[in-house]
Simulated assay, not measured.
Amino acid sequence: MLSKGTFVSSARNILKGNVIDIINVDNCSVIVVVDIGIPIKSLITTKSLNKMGIGKGTELYVVFKTVSVIVYK
């Protein structure tokens, strides 16, 4: 999940970073790349991107559970 602020959640991984890229996937979704020391990619809807006002440089919290992580080499 991406958030502009912190909140209570069962997810223990909450890392702050800045958006470094936004990649259009199709008319309905984008990949938001957040730099938290390493680049993290999150697939969200274009509607969510616009509603949250996310752009390059936006400060976001990346929130996730460990089981949601996929590592590519």
Rank of each mutant, 00 (worst) to 15 (best):
I14Q: 10
D21P: 08
G17H: 03
L15S: 06
Y61P: 06
I70L: 13
L43Y: 00
I31H: 00
I23L: 03
V25E: 11
S68Q: 12
K41N: 09
K73A: 11
V69A: 03
D21Y: 01
K56Y: 04
V71G: 04
G37T: 09
V30C: 09
I44Y: 00
V71S: 09
S68E: 14
D21E: 15
V33Q: 02
F64C: 12
I40C: 01
G37A: 13
V25P: 02
I40D: 01
S9N: 05
V19K: 04
S9Q: 04
N27S: 11
F64W: 07
T45W: 06
F7G: 12
T6W: 08
N18P: 05
V19E: 02
K16R: 15
F7T: 05
K4I: 07
M1N: 11
N50T: 13
I38D: 11
I54K: 05
G37L: 09
K16S: 14
K16Y: 00
L60T: 05
N13K: 11
V71E: 06
V71L: 15
I23D: 02
K56Q: 08
V62W: 01
M1A: 15
N13F: 09
S3L: 04
V19W: 01
V34I: 15
G37D: 10
K65D: 08
I70Y: 01
V69T: 02
L49M: 13
K73C: 09
M1Q: 12
G57V: 05
N18L: 07
K65F: 03
N18S: 14
K56V: 12
V25S: 08
N50G: 03
G57P: 10
D26T: 09
I44V: 04
T45N: 06
V8I: 13
V63D: 08
I44G: 01
S29M: 13
K4H: 11
V32I: 11
G55K: 15
Y72E: 11
L15M: 15
T58A: 08
K41H: 08
L49Q: 14
K41A: 06
N27Q: 11
K65N: 02
Y72W: 05
G57M: 10
I31R: 01
K65Q: 08
T6C: 07
K16V: 12
S10V: 13
M52T: 02
Y72A: 12
V33H: 00
E59K: 14
I40R: 00
T45E: 10
I44H: 03
E59M: 15
K51D: 14
T66A: 12
S42Q: 05
I38S: 12
Y72K: 14
S68L: 05
K16P: 13
T46S: 12
